[in-house]
């Protein structure tokens, strides 16, 4: 049976510089993780990798920010997506909050 090739660029996935600019201007919510004296550094790194799919280097960078600066802004997302990430992080008992970007 002949194989049907997937288009490299699918309909609806085309992003233009105009789209990028629009996304950058869109109001977003920041997902923040706060330091606490109980969760282990190795655990926090693992949770960041699992929840966000980050590589270890990026996860460690944010974990160290939490540890040394008291908090780290993990991502900026739409309200719904930010809420989803806060839920996921809190399922792992991390202190995560969200707030509108100013």
């Amino acid at each position: 049976m002949p194989k049907i090739l997937e288009p490299i660029v699918k309909p609806g996935e085309v992003t233009t510089p105009k789209d990028e600019a629009k996304r950058a201007r869109a109001p977003g919510y920041l997902v923040i993780c706060w330091n606490d004296p109980v969760n282990l550094m190795q655990y926090v790194t693992h949770v960041f990798q699992t929840v966000f799919g980050w590589n270890r280097e990026k996860a460690v960078k944010h974990m160290m920010e939490v540890h040394e600066l008291g908090k780290s802004v993990l991502t900026k997302e739409s309200f719904e997506k930010a809420e989803f990430y806060v839920h996921q992080l809190q399922k792992y008992s991390l202190q995560a909050t969200m707030e509108p970007e100013e």
């Binding site: 706060w34 309200f79 809420e83 839920h87 809190q90 909050t97 969200m98 707030e99 509108p100």
Partner: peptide, 25 residues
């Protein structure tokens, strides 16, 4: 209880989301 917002004066959307968070957890 865990809070979804760090600011006690969080906007209405966040206050509603807090209920969702409590139920989901």
């Amino acid at each position: 209880p865990r809070s979804i917002a760090s600011d006690a004066d969080a906007d209405q959307n966040l206050r509603a989301a807090q209920k969702d968070l409590d139920a989901a957890l």
